[in-house]
């Protein structure tokens, strides 16, 4: 699915990356815990989160996350926006809560970047 479709499904606002809406995304990971994102989120996935600080962008960069979707109507601070522009990571923001965001995307065919956490999931 194109990021543009994600934007429409979630009535999201594009904060960074208007030029990147044609990238293809298939998987997602949702969390507000940085360490869980680092442990489990996979390269090429979308990250759904309520965290808005610059660390989210740094982590997304470290992990090769395709796009950050901020949930619960959150807006990133100017520094996070500047960093996202620098490292070319799109940021979208949606008013839907994480549960609704995940539910709606799942219903349209987006799946988790992993399904379950089993022993050793970190390294797959």
């Amino acid at each position: 699915m194109k990021l543009r479709e994600i934007k429409e499904i979630l009535n999201a606002e594009v904060i960074v990356g208007e030029d990147k809406l044609d990238i293809e995304v298939k998987t997602a990971f949702g969390a507000d815990l940085m360490s869980d994102v680092l442990a489990f989120a996979k390269a090429g996935s979308m990250l759904l989160t309520g965290l808005t600080n610059t660390q989210v962008v740094r982590i997304a960069n470290v992990l090769d996350i395709a796009a950050i979707i901020l949930v619960r109507g959150k807006k990133p601070p100017a520094e996070a926006i500047a960093l996202a522009k620098d490292v070319h990571i799109p940021i979208l923001t949606t008013k839907y809560i994480l549960f609704e965001t995940a539910g709606r995307l799942f219903a349209k065919g987006i799946v988790g970047c992993l399904e379950k956490v089993e022993a050793g999931s970190e390294r797959i």
Binding site: S35, L51, V56, E122
Partner: peptide
């Protein structure tokens, strides 16, 4: 509240 301190740091370092 910044999203850290979930007690996964050293564990992540070791597993990666």
């Amino acid at each position: 509240e910044m999203g850290f301190g979930a007690g996964m740091g050293l564990y992540n370092i070791k597993s990666y």
